[in-house]
Design a protein around this nucleic acid. Sequence first.
DNA 1: CTACATCCTCTAGCGACTAGAGGTGCAAGA
DNA 2: TCTTGCACCTCTAGTCGCTAGAGGATGTAG
Lengths: 140, 140
Amino acid sequence: MKKITIGEAARHSGVKVPTIRYYESIGLLSEPSRSEGNQRSYEPADLDRLAFIRHARELGFEIDAIRTLLHLQDDPHQPCASADAIAKARLIEVEQRIRSLNALRAELEQMVESCCHGRVDQCRVIEVLADHGKCVHPRH
Amino acid sequence: MKKITIGEAARHSGVKVPTIRYYESIGLLSEPSRSEGNQRSYEPADLDRLAFIRHARELGFEIDAIRTLLHLQDDPHQPCASADAIAKARLIEVEQRIRSLNALRAELEQMVESCCHGRVDQCRVIEVLADHGKCVHPRH
DNA sequence: CTACATCCTCTAGCGACTAGAGGTGCAAGA
DNA sequence: TCTTGCACCTCTAGTCGCTAGAGGATGTAG
């Protein structure tokens, strides 16, 4: 049972030191044991948990969703319907976000392409911003 | 010169009342004149400015970028290179975001599709979260 | 033994709002 | 005229997920 310092845990997991402490403070990570001198001392299982959290954050899950997912992981006999639902909800969010960003991209491309590179009073960028009606797709 | 209350301005522009006050507080909107009873009283030009801000926010521009864009709009003889640069930077951001969200979507789709709908200990969603190596594209 | 990196706790800040408390103004109906 | 009730006012604090910095303690290598 080798002890792992918070700095090592950070390097290992890719989660920054203050972020690890933050996760502990909001109860996402349980309080680790401490050294003589009151320094946090982690175990390998904590690294797995950190990796889980980091991966979930990379996938854009909210802290609350991650909390639920971690609870599920801790209790493997539960039905996985909730995990499935959380992932599905996130997928739908991501799909919507992609759609809206695609519309934005089209708009921005149009703006940038048609910029006259002259003075502001002829600038398409400013003009379109000032008048939504000049957008390619009024819905974005 | 008809007076417009903050509530009407909100309905007209689609920007919420507290948000309008917030924009004023951070200097994005200049302080409007007031009625006898100290209530804000807007003019049509303010509505244009609000519409501009709202549109820019919808396109994801940051407040600081909007501040710059508004300054440019106010001074039409300036070259529009800065406006162009701001829009281009935003376009690049959006493109990157779309790429990364597409990767996320692929990952989430895989997760959701391969979910066994059984118990957590066989759940693909939890499994993949716990082990980044099981991702379709390790880079996301 | 000293230097220096790393750790500790605590508070405050970020961006862009949003919510709520506690009070005032105003217009319309009785 | 009075009252009802909505819209307005200011102010503070909260949201999310961290991040930064102060000021001090610990741990390790030379």
